[in-house]
Amino acid sequence: MAAIYSLYIINKSGGLIFYKDYGSAGRMDTNDTLRLASLWHSMHAISQQLSPVSGCSGIELLQADNFDLHCFQSLTGTKFFVVCEPGALHMESLLKHIYELYTDYVLKNPFYEMEMPIRCELFDLNLSQAVQKDRVLLLGR
């Protein structure tokens, strides 16, 4: 069974720029993923408003009944989040690694336009390798 169900990347205004499914049950169409991404963007912002102490930077981990959602926000406001099995480990480091891949293969790509959907072959390739490696790590525990 896959440890990771899906990966989303959303730009600073809440638009979905990358989505990859790794085997969740029930296909979601493009409209659904776009809606979920922008809903998450708003929930992330509202959670900062409700903080009892100052300096809150939004939800990092959401624990649902059937999955965990780990979110990483870069300094520029791009959010990366993975949906994984409850209790899956090393997700923070995986997200940081995906962020590295994003800076290397997307931002440094001269044909990539900022805030637009990601269509970069090298990013796809390295991402699938990173996720595979992570899966191996999880299987070995």
Partner: peptide
Amino acid sequence: FHSFRTNTY
């Protein structure tokens, strides 16, 4: 869901 965590709460 049963919980969520941010850096402050």
